[in-house]
Design a protein around this nucleic acid. Structure first.
Length: 422
RNA sequence: GGAGAGGUGGCAGAGCGGCCGAUUGCACCGGUCUUGAAAACCGGAGAUGGGGCAACUCAUCCCAGGGUUCGAAUCCCUGCCUCUCCGCCA
């Protein structure tokens, strides 16, 4: 969420940004509502003041004047409550528009509406040339009994799966490998809840309600299954004021991730590329409210993601995501796309966003500094260390050999206990 | 799951219908004293929103949301959370 006063003062810039991001918002209406709200606040405050005045006279009043004062107080109470009601309505309408406005955008982020307009910043490694027709991960898994989609569907429906045999070891190995690297870079490890309250989801910018929601919710409760540990890690400091000297804070979280994938039918649904549940190691950071500082941590997170995939020997490219594809909270976003021979194309494996103070404002996460009065909203960042299913696809497809075996990347071998599958 | 107790400022902890945005202690910041420090003493200090160029000023905030009342931290209802005891359990 953007600051109301900021929107009001920079309405042209906000409007231009919405256009770039492909978001339609009625900013005129927002402006009107804000003016109404402010007038109403003044009116309500005055009425409350008057009401307080009358109430404070009553205990000292004599018996003759008391009834009149009580009556006056009663009327003022009515006035205050109608005004408060109107204020609430206007504030709700205001908030609805305000929540629809996306974060401002980094000046260097590519402007564009189409996915293809994201800019490739760099590429690491070369897509391997095969002297045999490479199999995709589904075929490889059938061959080596690495997962069971049919059983997954029987138990939980389409989009669920069982990992089996070496795939299980690879999952654990990928988590271990990622966690070790991330910890080395100063990220505090967390194993997080897989459920979170709706207000935490909303604070992080997720929309748990509505037909197109990506979020599973738990019946008869205000809990949801998390779509990423970004939600739970971001929630750790909900409504907290931290000392600026404690920033930046770097957190890493292991969680299961659950996504309904509503509206995604037909798109890359083969195998375990798009699933309803997977395990992920996520990076999260709170930084001081200074774009230079959060930008630096953003670069740090991308560098860690690259280190992870370089260590696995998987070719990837880094995309600077264009305005139309950023999503609401991101000020700037970099994705890593790994080469997936079975798809014969790049596939998204990580995503790192700088959300500046957009999430913090709704989460209520602020910081205090000795030289500034009041508080400021911190900056938040998040990025994928390893999303197991996607990484697994890349590892299996890139490691396949002419004889049908799969070579396991060197850094994973200690945890898998073998150098190849098959 | 059953039975109790409770949630007040950074922490501890009073207040239990008007004089309470809140006594007090600790921690914190400034000052006096001191060669310096400690101790002692004096003073300051919360958040959010509105108005004002500003000094400042007004409103809101005692877990959250409702209610009673002229008036609520204080009374009532609901929810959330914490603690203690019992039961169950990986």
């Amino acid at each position: 969420m953007l600051d109301l006063q900021y929107i009001y003062d920079n309405i042209d810039a906000v409007a231009a940004n919405c256009t770039n991001r492909g978001v339609t918002v009625d900013l005129d209406q927002l402006r009107k509502l804000r003016d109404q709200r402010n007038a109403l606040i003044a009116e309500t405050d005055a009425a409350r003041h008057a009401s307080k005045d009358v109430s404070s006279q009553i205990p000292k009043a004599d018996a003759a004047t008391k009834p009149a004062l009580v009556e006056q107080g009663r009327q003022l109470r009515e006035t205050v409550s109608t005004l408060e009601e109107r204020q609430k309505e206007i504030e709700a309408a205001l908030r609805e528009i305000q929540s629809a406005i996306p974060n401002m955008t980094h000046p260097d982020a590519p402007v564009g509406r189409l996915e293809s307009e994201s800019k490739t910043v760099r590429t690491w490694g070369e897509p391997r040339q095969f002297d045999f027709p490479p199999l995709d991960h589904v075929a490889l898994c059938e061959k080596h009994q690495l997962f069971d989609l049919e059983a997954g569907a029987r138990v939980a429906g389409h989009g669920f799966y069982f990992l089996k045999n070496e795939a299980v070891l690879l999952e654990l190995a990928l988590i271990q490998y990622a966690v070790q690297i991330v910890r080395k870079h100063g990220f505090t490890l967390h194993s997080t809840p897989d459920l979170a309250r709706m207000d935490v989801l909303e604070g992080t910018g997720y929309q748990p309600r509505g037909n197109e929601t990506q979020i599973y919710s738990i019946a008869n409760s205000d809990l949801c299954l998390v779509a990423t540990a970004e939600i739970t890690l971001g929630g750790t400091l909900k409504d907290q004021i931290v000392n600026i000297s404690d920033l930046p804070m770097r957190l890493a979280g292991i969680s299961h991730c659950f996504r309904t994938e509503a509206g995604a039918h037909g798109k890359a649904t083969r195998g375990i590329y798009r699933v309803h549940q997977f395990t992920k190691v996520e990076l999260f950071a709170f930084t001081a409210p200074d774009v230079a500082l959060s930008d630096a941590v953003h670069q740090e997170i991308v560098a860690i993601e690259e280190e992870i995939f370089q260590g696995l020997g998987i070719p990837y490219r880094v995309l600077d995501i264009c305005t139309g594809d950023l999503g609401g909270p991101a000020y700037r976003k970099y994705d890593l796309e790994a080469w997936m021979p079975g798809r014969n194309e790049w596939g998204e494996v990580t995503s790192a966003s700088n959300c500046t103070d957009f999430q913090a404002r709704r989460l209520g996460t602020r910081c205090k500094s000795p030289d500034k009065k009041g508080t400021q909203f911190v900056h938040t960042l998040n990025g994928t260390a390893v999303a197991v299913t996607r990484a697994l696809i890349a590892v299996l497809e890139n490691g396949q050999q002419a004889d049908g075996s799969i070579v396991i990347p060197e850094p994973l071998r200690p945890w898998v206990g073998q150098a190849r599958i098959g």
